[in-house]
Amino acid sequence: MINGFTLNDPSTVTGEQKVIFEKAEQGFGFVPNIVNGFSESPVLAEAMLDLYGKFSSTSLDPIESHVVLQTINVLNECLYCVPAHSTGARKNGVEESLDESLRKNQPLDDEKLESLRVFTSEMVDQRGHVTGEQFNAFIDAGWSKRAALDVVFFITVKTLTNYGNHITGTDIDEVFQPMEWEPEAAPAS
């Protein structure tokens, strides 16, 4: 943890923090450090938990959702979120090779998933200002306009968690540590 943020002892939290810890326990089976650190701001912790509860309301299946989420984690260089999502995805049957490509920000073999990865990257890098050509390439690959809006939803999820983690410097939970990740070094100039 950085910037004066700390982890709370789950047995001593009270009030709204306690409610947040209980919700995290229900949703994730334990209280991940990210929720613990965010709980200093009930708004951010509640918003994160609310949005995590809505993945199944999107038109993307769990593998497609992982492609979008992990692509954003890598672009935003979230040292906490990449290992967390690798751990969760692999546990839920996402192929290791797929996740490895995402962690390295490399193209995917599957053409349709690759177009989803590319569109997500463009949306993040260009802050939603994608060109007509980029947007049409996404639609031509077989994605719906609703899927484009769902990508906006996932970008929001990651805005909350990636940005928040940069501020709190969340310690990686032990359970995620085998999947630790570092951004590729920038090419020497």
């Binding site: 910037n3 701001s41 501020i167």
Partner: peptide, 9 residues
């Protein structure tokens, strides 16, 4: 610090 995180929300 709480307000810093509220800004993120």
């Amino acid at each position: 610090r709480q307000q810093a995180l509220d800004v993120v929300a």
